[in-house]
């Protein structure tokens, strides 16, 4: 039993394992890029959480995604164990920043995976057309009212910019107001309200999308950590790397 455990641990602590898992992951995604455009089922993938969609969809078109999830899980274990082992083994080293930078990158990567995991379970996406004065009930119980749509139109009739004034109510009581603009959604109580298209004729109407992306914050944290580790590694590594025979 101990022998087997040691074998498993050695497998996950190996850099070779990381390389082969990365290669396997690349192959899975590569296959996926050719299957995806050919199958209509993938059109619905944006409308529901990944895991719900995976369970409903036939395995003959989703096997590569299942494979990618398995390899990612193994890669997660490999990353985690390698990082812990590296910090323990090299903790006495002088170049502490050089030791810790790759581990910060790894932690950033793990946060990004956590973000995808959370979004794959609990994301939500709903759409509706709204005109001025209309209201919809959001999944968190709030009511959203579209107050006014404003646009900047150029001489050719092209909408250069737009904004929409909205109000939130709960049980008929006003709780907040906000302005939605391009790249500036309204975020409240875990939901994001986005305006996808604006049309002014024959009357002002917008296409609204309401989303919940539970992984977004973790993805941001992961991204910041990844970049911080990457920049510090870059500065240290570029200096250290010797070029044979060059000045």
């Amino acid at each position: 039993m101990t022998f087997l455990l040691k074998h498993i641990l050695n497998f996950f602590l190996s850099l070779r394992t990381a390389i082969w898992l990365l290669l396997a992951q690349i192959i899975m995604l590569l296959v996926g890029t050719f299957i995806m455009p050919m199958k209509e089922e993938f059109q619905n993938l944006h409308t529901e959480p990944l895991f719900d969609w995976l369970i409903e969809s036939p395995v003959d078109i989703t096997w590569w995604l299942w494979g990618a999830i398995v390899f990612l899980s193994l890669l997660t274990a490999n990353t985690l164990l390698c990082s812990v082992e590296s910090v323990i083994r090299k903790r006495a080293a002088r170049q502490w920043l050089l030791i810790i930078s790759p581990q910060v990158i790894h932690i950033g990567f793990l946060f990004m995976l956590l973000a995808h995991l959370l979004s794959s379970y609990g994301s939500f996406r709903g759409t509706a057309y709204m005109n001025e004065g209309s209201a919809i009930t959001l999944p968190n119980g709030n009511e959203l009212m579209l107050n006014q749509i404003k646009t900047e139109v150029d001489p050719s009739g092209y909408i250069r910019n737009w904004s929409a004034d909205i109000k939130y109510y709960r049980d008929g009581i006003f709780i907040a107001d906000d302005v939605i603009q391009p790249n500036s959604p309204s975020l409240l109580d875990g939901l994001g309200v986005y305006i996808k298209t604006v049309q002014m004729r024959p009357f002002p109407v917008v296409f609204v999308e309401v989303t919940r992306e539970p992984g977004a914050l973790w993805a941001l944290v992961g991204g910041i950590l990844f970049l911080a580790g990457m920049i510090s590694l870059l500065v240290l590594k570029i200096k250290r790397e010797d070029v044979p025979g060059e000045r």
Partner: peptide, 26 residues
């Protein structure tokens, strides 16, 4: 995320970008 409400889209471009990133990680 700010424009469309999600930081990830399931399209071939996003997958190829990830492949590229994984390849250089490799």
């Amino acid at each position: 995320f700010l424009a469309w409400g999600t930081y990830w889209l399931w399209t071939p471009k996003e997958l190829w970008t990830t492949i590229l990133w994984l390849f250089y990680s490799l």
